[in-house]
Amino acid sequence: MRIRRAGEWSLLVETGSLEISHRLDTLLRADRPAGVVEIVPGPATVLVTAPGADLTRLRDRLLHLLETGSTIDAGSAVPAPPVTIPVVYDGADLDEVAALSGLSPGEVVERHTGRELVVGWLGFAPGFAYLTGLDPALRVPRLATPRTSVPAGSVAVAGPYSAVYPSASPGGWRLLGRSTTAVWDVTAEPPALLTPGTRVRFLAVGEP
């Protein structure tokens, strides 16, 4: 475990795993140290930004949380139920994903809906959540040439991740289908439906 300095106002905590990143993120949000404005979990780090705060004290606090946090029973809090996202599996790349993975399109859908995924972190665009825990059979490379526009709500896979495009944007992930669930709403608080640590279950549906 190492805490790295990232400029005058930030510390980058190396957690080494997404699980510990999420735990530290939860602990920091539940009892936010003074002056902290950003807590950004990543696959192996958590960035903590506190402009003007005493970073020596913050570092001590983070070390303490890392030491004691691992012993806090994660089961003591009742976990939120998973978010169910209905999907119409008629994506432009469904057949190609099936071919690449040696499955039938129906089996791709079964495997995509068959597991609970967990939001690892967000990036690329506001509300764009990297969903971890994808069935390894569905690991396919990105498109060689990204699409110039992918519609909002597109459900896609690339590498070890799945995602729901929060808004229309260019994109190189392979499209399995589309969801009518809005995962991004700037008028909501929080504006993102899928926040780090949220569990997600896809559900195959017919025409919405």
């Binding site: 990232a6 400029g7 106002w9 930030s10 980058l12 950003e38 950004v40 979990p41 990543g42 696959p43 192996a44 780090t45 958590v46 960035l47 930004t49 972190w121 967000l122 990036g123 690329f124 990297y130």
Partner: peptide
């Protein structure tokens, strides 16, 4: 490098080796 949080003022170095200094609209990770 696994994706990680970025701060304004970061001197990020892409594979070209030519640094980029992040300003206000930088990607958060």
């Amino acid at each position: 490098l696994p994706s990680e949080g970025m701060v304004a003022g970061a001197v990020q170095v892409p594979p070209s080796g030519q640094p980029i200094v992040f300003l206000a609209d930088h990607p958060p990770t």
